[in-house]
Design a protein around this nucleic acid. Sequence first.
DNA 1: CGCCGAGGCGGGAAAATTTCCTATGTCTAT
DNA 2: ATAGACATAGGAAATTTTCCCGCCTCGGCG
Lengths: 151, 151
Amino acid sequence: MKIDATDRKILSELQRDAAQSLDEIAKAVGSSKTPVWNRIRKMREAGIIGAQTVVLDAEALGFEATFFVLIRTSEHEADWQRRFLHALQARPEVQEAHRLAGDIDYILKVRVKNARAYDAFYQALISEVKVHNVTALLSMEQIKETTALPL
Amino acid sequence: MKIDATDRKILSELQRDAAQSLDEIAKAVGSSKTPVWNRIRKMREAGIIGAQTVVLDAEALGFEATFFVLIRTSEHEADWQRRFLHALQARPEVQEAHRLAGDIDYILKVRVKNARAYDAFYQALISEVKVHNVTALLSMEQIKETTALPL
DNA sequence: CGCCGAGGCGGGAAAATTTCCTATGTCTAT
DNA sequence: ATAGACATAGGAAATTTTCCCGCCTCGGCG
């Protein structure tokens, strides 16, 4: 599927505020309801537009600690990797996980209520899968957060 | 503002799918339209519920490279910090930025079209603000991604 | 050069949803 | 037990989404 400038403007508006009405989006992109609706429908079908969610205030809900966890492992067999992956998927405090190129094998972003909760998470993880080396970076302050792609 | 179990269920539903109708949410949390609507309104006013956005398929839109950037700096004056912060805010490829405790001072999550675009970003950044040491971790594969908090 | 077909566009109408009001119910503290 | 504070259900009005239809534009083709 190909995306033109109008599609990009629509995506940009949706990222800014997905609760807008079609009329508002249409006005913002300089078109009218129906074409905008058709484009959104097509992009949804193509999987370019995925789920619609809300941004919550993590601090207000008691999630006051964010850690980035750098993981090195000596195990690289398929079985180990599968178990590791499942462990991450199953733990809701893991907000993001990437397999990396180079020296460090994995990075996790972990959101928890406090440092104690992080330790509980850490103990549970290393008891499930063997890892060679773990470094935790504690966030003092979130300077920027956005999910918006620059279109 | 205090949050009870019903509020948490509502938030959970909204995180799962913010496009649901009030009736659907009400059914899911075992209540009816109006109370759900009032609770959502109050949580919005309190800032617990923030913006509503869509999740886009970054790969399909040509953003194929994600880097985590670890930054050490020798400068810790207020002025340097302010300039650094502004530089990050101004760059749309920076999706996330944290000030850290310990050895490493900052971590960034940077999303770009390709490695070349990362290099352009990197050159631009270090020409704006002086940093002591930069390590870039390239993501090979995003194993997990969610913004949902475990309520 | 004109014609034809495909596809996007705008208007509008029906269905669904949100928003808001009112009356009723429930829980707590004294 | 009772008053007060607050949450709830139902429903009505306004807004929004969804979808249908006729029109216009733009490409290729005779």
